[in-house]
Design a protein around this nucleic acid. Structure first.
Lengths: 181, 181
DNA sequence: GCGCACATGTAACCTGTTACATGATTTG
DNA sequence: CAAATCATGTAACAGGTTACATGTGCGC
């Protein structure tokens, strides 16, 4: 049981998912390839942490459910939390911004903006969906069940907006610092 | 020459560093263990990307310099930039916030705040130092040389502030959603 | 019918982590 | 003078990526 296993168990604590869904839900804060996810899910099954249930209706769709190993998650949550890891190639490139020509700089920032705009458009509908839950008194149980997810989606949304604002600020400063008029 | 190698070359483009310094400079956006850094620096030397220069004064201190392999960095900068990777155990735990007891939630947020406050206090003096460069017309060359680094330190500072604000917002919302008065 | 998103899996390989090792210099 | 920080390195192992493989269902 490594960290990824516990991350998967956390996802499953909310609702049963397929491996495919787990990957998508996790992408907000933990990127893993499907090859890795299916491999560790297999190990987790042999160790009794999850159960596979074949879906008979729509063929070939497996549902996974967390079994009565919940206490192991509660225990993990109390253990010391490792610091977040980030690896951002774009920022390594920005490190040498003063050595690049202007067109390269423009391209780098445009790519970055494009990427975060795309992220934002994927995120926005998720956020709105969750905020509908929040404001519907008839769906209190669902809201409670999605509360953690809402906090994370909200954080991700802020992050995207701030990154885009930083791109604009940084590019402006670059021009006002290095353009000799 | 993998991604880490290019990240190291970017750091060295700014100034000569020891392996130890490289680790610290990179930590802003790419965390690597010293064992990995020294290993790849060794490979980079045999392939002629860097040179080791022993420091005769203060014993045992090696300075590394980037050689005339600069064009390879320029080429790398133009290649497609991989998306940033993040792995945040804390957010996985937040996913199951609705299943935790209140004291666990309080502890989680407090640890997170402590961590980001610490980050902020490490970052703040770096930011101030760079802003002094920016405002000193006599140190234009230095400012230009540190411009990329400034952009990154600034981004990191914003990130810390926003994370701390999010913690307060999230914990408030948690209480107003789940405290039955 | 073609391409795309859904859906799952294995194997080889590269990257990153942990543990082991050592020694100098600085600060309380 | 003990503890922390500076400073570098190797080896074994665990984690993560890439490539290979296969098949379904939907919309254009």
């Amino acid at each position: 049981m490594n960290t990824l296993s516990y991350v998967l168990l956390c996802m499953l604590a909310r609702k049963s998912c397929t491996g495919y869904e787990l990957k998508q839900y996790m992408e907000l804060f933990w990127q893993a390839h499907h090859s890795q996810i299916y491999t560790v899910l297999g190990k987790m099954e042999t160790e009794g942490y999850v159960q596979f249930e074949a879906d008979p209706d729509t063929t070939k769709k497996n549902l996974l459910t967390n079994r009565k190993r919940r206490p192991s998650v509660s225990k993990w949550v109390l253990e010391e939390t490792a610091e977040p890891i980030s690896r951002d190639e774009f920022l390594a490139k920005i490190y040498v911004i003063a050595l690049m020509d202007k067109s390269t700089v423009a391209q780098l920032f445009n790519d970055r903006r494009r990427h975060y705009k795309k992220r934002a458009t994927i995120n926005k509908p998720k956020l709105e969906e969750l905020e509908i839950l929040q404001n519907d008194p008839a769906r209190k149980v669902e809201w409670r069940n999605s509360f953690g997810r809402y906090l994370i989606v909200k954080r991700r949304d802020e992050l995207c907006m701030q990154e885009l604002a930083w791109c604009d600020w940084a590019e402006d400063l670059y021009h006002s610092s290095f353009d000799k008029i």
